[in-house]
Amino acid sequence: MLEIKDLHVCVEEDPSEKILKGVNLTINEGEIHAIMGPNGSGKSTLSKVVAGHEAYEVTQGNILYNGESILELEADERAHLGIFLAFQYPVEVPGVTNKNLLRQAYNTIAEEQGREELDPLQFEDHAREQLKLIDMKEEFLERSVNAGFSGGEKKRNEIFQMAVLQPKLAFLDETDSGLDIDALKIVANGINELSGEDNAVVLVTHYQRILDYVQPDHVHVMIDGKIAKSGDKDLAIKLEEEGYDWLSEGASVL
């Protein structure tokens, strides 16, 4: 589904600031991946680059989605293909309700994918159904997007949006950070409910904690702009116990 090949990325305004230095990653339908790594290793940048953020420039390599390069596509065009990013810092949009944003988003994507658009009543039913997943009341639909939300509510809202929009490939950028244990369980439950045979989820995270509730098929460690090691869930446990140092040293020796 997604193939990232030798991806090199720098900051558009400052090309000397190289963030990704040759990332290779393949993600198939039905898989859950976890990308871990220390601060500044490029995990968040990778998610944003896949989503099409304009602040970054790809200098080498490619990103293929279902076999086709998406590098030339705008962020909205990538969203139309079913790529979703749950933001590390969800943005506030005062005066625009969650419901209005999501209905417009849902119908735009549905139209692009040739699926049926939903009228306001149908959409409301669909959205209410998804609210249960994240254990939120219906008022949540009428509140302005992220405006005045607590940190935990913002993160839950990202999962809610994912549930409503039903993406094929979702990058969750530190969605687990700053959540208490109950909220973490809710978020994890949402991820489990939404992952299936036809879609894939990539968890970008600092902590092994969420992996107690979501079982990843693959765990990758990112260090200094590259994937330093890939493995299964045991890798995450080892990281939790031993930290990242053993990998950085190994990487420098190589």
């Binding site: 099409g52 304009e54 969203a79 969800p90 949009v93 625009v96 988003a105």
Partner: peptide
């Protein structure tokens, strides 16, 4: 970027932000 990531083009994104503001 946030609104584009949700599928809206740039003009629709600005329009939505401005209408929310007003």
């Amino acid at each position: 970027f946030y609104l584009q990531q949700r599928g809206m083009d740039e003009d629709d994104a600005i329009s939505l932000i401005v209408n929310g503001f007003a």
